[in-house]
């Protein structure tokens, strides 16, 4: 019975191993997928792009610390030029494996991102189907509001 089970497990494992190479995104480290159609031929190519941030990167004086801690900045929720560096185009916070922040900074910055979104300071970083203008929100949410950073609770 055991050997039979092992056989089945091995078979399943092998199947998964075979299908694994079909996942193109993380394995091939592609930044942008380009599709080109010419003469009924669809050419799909992956291209690694520059992020455009290299010339403007701050030098990290303390490489053992995360970039936010090392900068020593007191970031507020109105500092949208800083917060937008940690955000997706749909308005959410990037995960920690991409931002590379420490646990504490990641939580602090994501709270600030939520505050800035609620205050309507980044109206164009939103999903396509949402109201981009904060004045279009319902009820009390359409009126101007601000936040105190001291209300963020982190250990």
């Amino acid at each position: 019975m055991n050997t039979l089970l092992k056989c089945v497990q091995n078979f399943r494992f092998n199947v998964f191993k075979q299908t694994k190479h079909l996942s193109i995104y993380p394995a091939l480290r592609v930044k942008e997928i380009q599709e080109k159609e010419t003469n009924n031929e669809l050419v799909i190519s992956g291209k690694i792009l520059e992020s455009g941030r290299e010339p403007y990167l701050l030098k990290n004086e303390h490489p053992e610390a995360c970039p936010v801690c090392a900068s020593g900045l007191q970031i507020k929720h109105t500092d949208v030029l800083i917060l937008s560096q940690f955000m997706r185009s749909t308005g959410g916070m990037l995960p920690r494996r991409i931002t590379g922040l420490c646990r504490r900074s990641q939580k602090y910055i994501s709270s600030l991102v939520i505050m800035a979104n609620k205050a309507g300071l980044m109206p164009h970083l939103k999903p396509a189907n949402s109201h981009k203008d904060p004045k279009m929100r319902r009820g009390w949410k359409k009126y101007n509001k601000y936040f105190y950073e001291s209300t963020i609770k982190i250990k």
Partner: peptide, 21 residues
């Protein structure tokens, strides 16, 4: 507070960056 879409594009692009993707 100044909204992000009120800044010019080059202001946003050339602002000092804390992290690289």
């Amino acid at each position: 507070p100044k909204r992000l879409d009120e800044y010019k594009e080059e202001e946003v692009r050339e602002f000092p960056k804390l992290i690289d993707l």
